[in-house]
Design a protein around this nucleic acid. Structure first.
Lengths: 251, 251
DNA sequence: GTCTATAGTCGGATAGAC
DNA sequence: GTCTATCCGACTATAGAC
């Protein structure tokens, strides 16, 4: 909660006109890259600043200089992810919002939803780094740490919001419809799960990696689910549980 | 990998005939309950043996006596979860297997799938404790620790296996069908996500808790998805990605 | 069976030189 | 800006008394 300002070079008189600032900038970026990977692979607690410093080729106090403390570094990682996320999804999201504003048809909404999910998937398998990023985000959202707020507000919430609105349009219901939110949550967390739960996905599917080809397979399944929205026979009403306890539930 | 035998009372001459063993048993159980909760709330690394000892009302070496070391305690927790899981799902799983052996129809398979998912959901909201359990399982499966093998082999794999076979039956394909496995993975991880990603679920859905009522809502959505399996118009073939990049993908 | 006391390790943060 | 050297706290595990 306490918004500790990074005591690094940001606030000091670095931007003043001399060319000697270049090296620090590069070092900072190198540290950030390493940290991004490390925090993707393991939790905040598990990763040690020593590891990051060593892997970055700098020594411990250099971290503190650039990022204040461990939490500052962690938050900087989250901010970097958010920035990349924004640049990869704003295009699709903007188009979807535009269509919604123009009161588009259910089928148009469906197409935009697929495009949006596709863009998200593209981000998740885009480069080598993004594997870690998905894990970073998923972990932080699951058990909140120092970067929860920024990730939730800047990444998760907008994503769910636009997705839910598209689904609501498909269902021909209102924007706040809980059923639509639920389906949005389902859809996004499913997608995220494939990268964040990488280990279990690979082992379950007998894959050796999650590349574009694997993600395409996943996407086709998700697209089929999107096609099914609003078309299932036993529509997702409030009380469809009866079928589920046909002959089970031995309590 | 090294199957370190718990050096506790199990192997020693405790079972010999004297009545003084009762207290140790109770202490062990109390420690286990506390640990189960603790390891559900936080990761293996984050939880300290001190916390558990204090909360259990025993002191540190008592833990070592009963469970050997921290990993032993962790594994014991996993084993306890597996046992409970088995007792809650064997009934539904056995019926499903029976039906599959008798070459049941797609609709029968669909019903059994719903029953199975329902049983799983019932476990996930069954009692106060199970909230933590889902987090324990999900975390361990996502980034493998000392209890990964037992959870994967005794809990995850059987669950996916029977689910995938039911889905394959619905799709009228063979048992090993990757598409069926994928849908099984999707379905189970979606369900698990609601408890393991509790925080984000609550916040996204504006719920204050995940009780039977909320789980029923989730179940109805999942049931709708199950109903949609094998019925979607653009069937989940190998190349359905074209739609996804209609006008998105600004690369 | 359970305790007190302690050994040994490791991680985060800081002081101060360069 | 980046380093070396160091402090301090917290953790796991063990030894040995009761």
């Amino acid at each position: 909660m306490s918004e500790t300002v990074p005591p690094g070079p940001k606030t000091s008189a670095r931007a003043a006109a001399n060319a000697g600032y270049r090296k620090g900038e590069e070092t900072r970026k190198r540290i950030l890259d390493i940290a991004l990977r490390a925090f993707g692979d393991a939790s905040f607690r598990s990763v040690t600043t020593r590891q990051i410093a060593e892997a970055s080729g700098v020594s411990l106090p250099a971290l503190q200089y650039h990022f204040g403390d461990k939490e500052g570094l962690y938050r900087a990682c989250a901010a970097a992810i958010v920035e990349r996320y924004r640049s990869h999804t704003t295009a699709a999201a903007a188009k979807a919002r535009e269509a919604l504003r123009e009161d588009c048809s259910a089928e148009t909404a469906r197409a935009h939803l697929k495009a949006l999910i596709g863009a998200l998937a593209g981000l998740l398998v885009g480069s080598k780094e993004t594997e870690s990023w998905a894990q970073f985000v998923a972990r932080e959202l699951r058990d909140p740490g120092p970067a929860f707020e920024i990730l939730y507000e800047s990444l998760w919430r907008p994503g769910v919001e636009i997705t839910a609105r598209l689904i609501a349009r498909i269902l021909a219901s209102t924007d706040g419809d809980p059923a639509a939110r639920l389906q949005a949550l389902l859809l996004i967390s499913s997608l995220l799960a494939f990268q964040s739960g990488r280990n279990i996905t690979l082992r379950t599917m007998h894959w050796s990696t999650i590349g574009p080809q694997e993600m395409a397979t996943v996407l086709s399944t998700l697209n089929a689910q999107i096609d099914a929205i609003g078309r299932s026979r036993s529509r997702p009403a409030k009380r469809a549980t009866a079928a589920g306890r046909k002959k089970a539930s031995p309590r």
